[in-house]
């Protein structure tokens, strides 16, 4: 046991712990991030030729200039999607009451 800890506690009186995202806005932040994440995942999936044979979707994707089957899809779609999902998942856990 460390009896000096009471002084440490007193000394830190001016700096209570405040989280980056407060409890009130966790759901909104998580929802937006997950929406972005899933949207980007969808775009990534649709850009895969063997996963999607619909000519209409192929046409849309071509119009949006998504590179078909290209390795470029990974950094421009998959990585941002993963980042958004990663932070979104953590905040969604907190938002539903399981404070991880």
């Amino acid at each position: 046991m460390d009896s000096s800890l009471h002084e440490v506690w007193q000394a830190a009186a001016g700096s209570p712990f405040v989280p980056t995202v407060g409890k009130g806005s966790q759901f909104l932040v998580a929802f937006v991030l997950l929406l972005i994440g899933f949207s980007l995942s969808g775009a990534f999936a649709l850009s895969m030729p063997y996963l999607c044979h619909s000519n209409v979707i192929q046409l849309v994707l071509l119009t949006m200039r998504f590179p078909d089957r290209s390795l470029v899809n990974l950094p421009i779609l998959a990585v941002p999607a993963s980042l958004a999902l990663a932070v979104g998942v953590v905040y969604m856990f907190c938002a539903v009451g399981v404070y991880v």
Partner: peptide, 25 residues
Amino acid sequence: RKPLVVFASAVAVFVVAWIVGNVEL
């Protein structure tokens, strides 16, 4: 650690999907 683990897992899923998507059937 928590977001990094989720991030790494998600990237892995995307990479696998991309590889599988590129297999000529």
